[in-house]
Design a protein around this nucleic acid. Structure first.
Length: 583
RNA sequence: GCGCCCGUAGCUCAGUAGGACAGAGCAACGGACUUCUAAUCCGUGGGCCAGGGGUUCGAAUCCUCUCGGGCGCGCCA
């Protein structure tokens, strides 16, 4: 008969796979009841339970967990923290909790020393939860949209877009992991001045290729890709556009090249492991009248005025240093007007939360958009804009802005080709969005110990190798369901060396890492975690043999490494890097 | 000039909603492969957390000023 292991019936779904959070909760309860007892007995006088934390001390000597309750209570209790800590400690009931001893230390910490096997239960949890280990329900199914990359469709994507892609996709995945209903969106800037310039540039190249005198306008696009588009078009259609009206001709060229560029972007992003649910065209906002509508609404609400022949938005009414133009003198709405309409549209589509990832060069735009949303009666708090610092590219030890060969910046496609999807995505998510990222192409390419992505993938490959050999030897990794809880506990109690304990504790950290990564919108924490987990595994690997003469020890260690492999995979999935079976 | 971001070991950066002596990788040096992958491990050295002041029982973390770097401040997007 199969028996299902239940580690907790009285905790919610988010706790079910988080043995660490369960332990923290348990210790908090012990502490609170001891505190309540002390108050009841008159040993302490407090007006309520202080908002204290159970945390993991930095130093091992300080135990497995610590409570800072005494320091928090010192003020209202009018008593030195150490004394309060003693009072609480003396009233703690630790019977049957796994707590071996409690000590008061330092300025007044209450340190908990647990049995070294306290976290062992995480292994069967991981083996039965599998890809769901780490999953939580913070989002409660709320709809969130993550808009990222949104590169100009006038040319290929660059390194900044690549960083945005890696960050946005990983962020979307983390939010999915914690229970949000996530949609990934790409905003196509297929309208406005830049499209005008794009058309003029295409036309100039077309004429030039057919032997006519022409030049790229001010602010136009000089890249080789513009020429390539027109060369290709001439091959297919010849010189028939020479007789066309210039405006119609340009519109045709733009249509033609845009379609190609967008297809190319989709392809490049796919090769980078990123796919979007929605590709949203800016032009549709103009065509559907949504831009006009938003201008009308702002005017109705009294937030616009005319000056110098243009229509302005009173951004200063929302704490923005300067008012902004909505409609130019020539009657054409600005990008800003379209962006207001775009964000209104996002909320009208029913998203509870909207996240935009923008490059640092757009940060001045943030308060304006939020102000405009507030003017329209939307809650600007529901819009989170992550400002991503720019990427500096290094090659041969110096800043590489342009590729000499092509005369253009390094593209996302170049990056994937040169360093590979895994290394690139790992690098981009190694740091927070705030940091000015230095991307060292030589280092990323290097297949050596200097390159951290191989370090974590190697851990996965090593485990795969062990599992392959176990199979060859006919050794089965026990399924968690087929062992009764007591037997499981006994089996896992074999794992008591320092390397094993450390590794198991790392496994228990995972749900918390996911939670913090999600709530602080920082997928890089998961990247850092994979390195810590890999380090703990590699140490274990060098200290302990998995396939031994002892069948029980072998079983226990096989379960452990399989759990490590599972957690690595779960993390890799979020980061969008592959989990190689061999290296 | 004004606004946003950043400043932690020689280099690249962590530091978990302020917590106990500040951590990791790389680089440097010294060790470990007839044993499940040495793309690994173990060990050693290395710091006025840019600087001053403030809040706090307690500050790399919060406030303020100064210095240094990046990015904005278009009827571009």
């Amino acid at each position: 008969m199969r028996r299902c292991i239940k580690y907790s019936d009285n905790f919610g779904r988010s706790f079910m796979n988080d043995v660490k959070a369960q332990m923290k909760e348990k210790l908090k309860e012990i502490t609170v009841s001891a505190l309540a007892k002390a108050v009841e007995e008159g040993a302490l006088s407090l007006d309520g339970i202080p908002d204290f934390a159970i945390e993991v001390p930095q130093a091992r000597e300080h135990g497995d967990f610590a409570a800072n309750v005494a320091m928090m209570a010192a003020r209202t209790a009018k008593m030195p923290p150490r004394k309060i800590a003693e009072i609480i400690k003396d009233r703690m009931d630790i019977a049957g909790t796994g707590v071996e001893r409690v000590e008061v230390a330092g300025p007044g910490f209450i340190n908990f020393y647990l049995s070294p096997t306290w976290a062992h239960g995480v292994i069967p949890v991981i083996l039965s939860e599998k890809e769901n280990y780490g999953r939580q329900d913070i989002g409660k199914g709320r709809k969130v949209q993550v808009e990222f990359v949104s590169a100009n469709p006038t040319g290929p994507m660059h390194m900044g877009n690549a960083r945005g892609a890696a960050l946005g996709d990983a962020l979307a995945s983390v939010l999915e992991m914690v229970g949000y209903d996530v949609e990934r969106e790409f905003y196509i800037n297929d309208a406005g001045n830049q499209i005008e310039n794009f058309g003029l540039s295409l036309e100039a190249r077309y004429l030039e290729l057919l032997g006519y005198e022409s030049s790229i306008p001010e602010g136009g696009y000089h890249g080789e890709d513009i020429k390539d588009h027109m060369r290709e078009l001439i091959e297919k259609e010849g010189d028939k556009f020479l007789s066309w009206d210039s405006a119609e001709r340009r519109a045709y060229f733009v249509e033609y090249a845009l379609k190609k560029n967008i297809a190319r972007m989709k392809e490049d992003l796919k090769n980078f492991g990123v796919t979007f649910d929605v590709w949203f065209s800016e032009r549709t906002l103009h065509e559907s009248g949504k831009v006009q509508e938003v201008i009308r609404l702002l005017t109705e609400r009294g937030y616009t005025y005319e000056k110098d022949g243009a229509l302005w938005f009173k951004a200063t009414a929302f704490g923005v240093p300067k008012d902004e133009v909505l409609v130019r003198q020539n009657g054409i709405p600005t990008y800003f007007a379209a962006d207001i309409a775009y964000h209104k549209d996002k909320f009208d589509r029913g998203f509870d939360w909207v996240i935009d990832i923008w490059g640092a060069d757009h940060h001045g735009h943030v308060p304006r958009v939020k102000g405009a949303l507030a003017a329209l009666g939307y809650d600007p708090e529901k819009l989170t804009i992550i400002i991503m610092q720019l990427v500096r590219l290094y090659r041969n030890g110096e800043i590489a802005r342009m590729s000499k060969r092509t005369g253009r910046a390094v593209t996302l496609a170049d990056l994937v080709e040169e360093v590979g999807k895994d290394a690139a995505r790992f690098f981009f998510n190694l740091r927070g969005a705030d940091t000015h990222l230095d991307f060292d192409l030589d280092l990323a390419v290097k297949q050596s110990e200097e390159n951290p992505v191989y370090y974590v993938q190697y851990a996965h490959a090593r485990i795969s190798s062990i599992l392959r050999q176990a199979k060859e030897q006919g050794v089965e990794v026990p399924e968690s369901g087929e062992i009764a809880p007591q037997d499981m506990e006994k089996l896992l109690s074999e794992l008591i060396s320092e390397a094993e304990i450390e590794l198991i504790k790392k496994l228990a950290d995972f749900p918390e890492v996911i939670k913090v990564a999600a709530t602080t919108l920082s997928p890089y924490r998961i990247t850092n975690y994979t390195m810590e987990l890999a380090a703990a595994f590699h140490s274990f690997y060098n200290a302990c043999r998995v396939l031994t003469e002892d069948p029980n020890l072998t079983k226990a260690r096989l379960m452990l490494v399989k759990a490590v492999q599972q957690v690595l995979r779960n993390a890799f999935n979020i980061l969008g890097i592959s989990a190689p079976e061999r290296m």
